[in-house]
Nucleic acid binder design. Structure first.
Lengths: 118, 118
DNA sequence: TCCATGTTTCCATTATTATCGAAATGTCGA
DNA sequence: TCGACATTTCGATAATAATGGAAACATGGA
């Protein structure tokens, strides 16, 4: 994951509504949750929800799929791992003591996919 | 770490210059680096550097100390750990598979300090 | 085809954040 | 105390992000 994409992910999560969306999706696995349900639970107007979830989507943190009239959103495990790896590489690579108990797991090198990178 | 503080940390890192400051500090341990040196290395005007580094400081991610005429900045290990814990709690707590190899380390509960929480 | 339902796009408005020169503040040495 | 140096604050301006109603688009059922 390159810097630019990491910044998108950080920005995406750096907003109250979006962090809530993220946390909500965290509890709904690969099945995910319909846009309408998310909007309902978080009491957001449809247009606002749509705007924010697109932000998360562009950042590579959520996936969407249509199912009937609904669009279901779920977390993107690959995206999350890339993002977390990026952060941890910096912290634990440069100053392992920053990561405390997270230290042990950092030997894993950042993986590179064939071409999919946007 | 509560949501509000986590959002500050995410916002703080979600900016090209600030992410670079962070990464630079990562390579300078507890000794840290003077404001002027950071500005020089990143080619930022002093006022701009000062603005951004305050953002990181408010987010609890960096520490500052004066030494002679200089102000030295370094990463705040406590702040980083709280921040990373917050993120990992959500991901690995809700959907462990998101964290992949990071999974193992999550049994650790979020620690709570006596009163320092802002 | 027509309608109800679910979602997204458009777009105007408002709010927040970034930029950086100039002035102010703090520190040291002479 | 003065002057050089290091950094921060001020303040005006520019750039970017958020909000949400209304209109457009997509889907499925009758």
């Amino acid at each position: 994951m390159e810097e630019h994409q990491a910044i998108r992910a950080l920005s995406a999560l750096a907003h109250e509504s979006r962090l809530r969306i993220f946390r909500l999706l965290t509890r709904h696995g690969t099945e995910g949750l319909a846009a309408g349900k998310i909007a309902e639970q978080l009491e957001l107007p449809a247009a606002t929800l749509s705007f924010h979830i697109k932000e998360l989507s562009n950042a590579g943190l959520v996936l969407d799929r249509r199912e009937g009239r609904s669009v279901l959103y779920s977390l993107n495990a690959d995206g999350m791992q890339n993002f977390l790896s990026f952060l941890l590489d910096d912290c634990c690579g440069g100053q392992p003591e920053l990561c405390g108990p997270l230290y042990q797991l950092k030997p894993k090198p950042r993986r590179k996919r064939a071409s999919k990178e946007a």
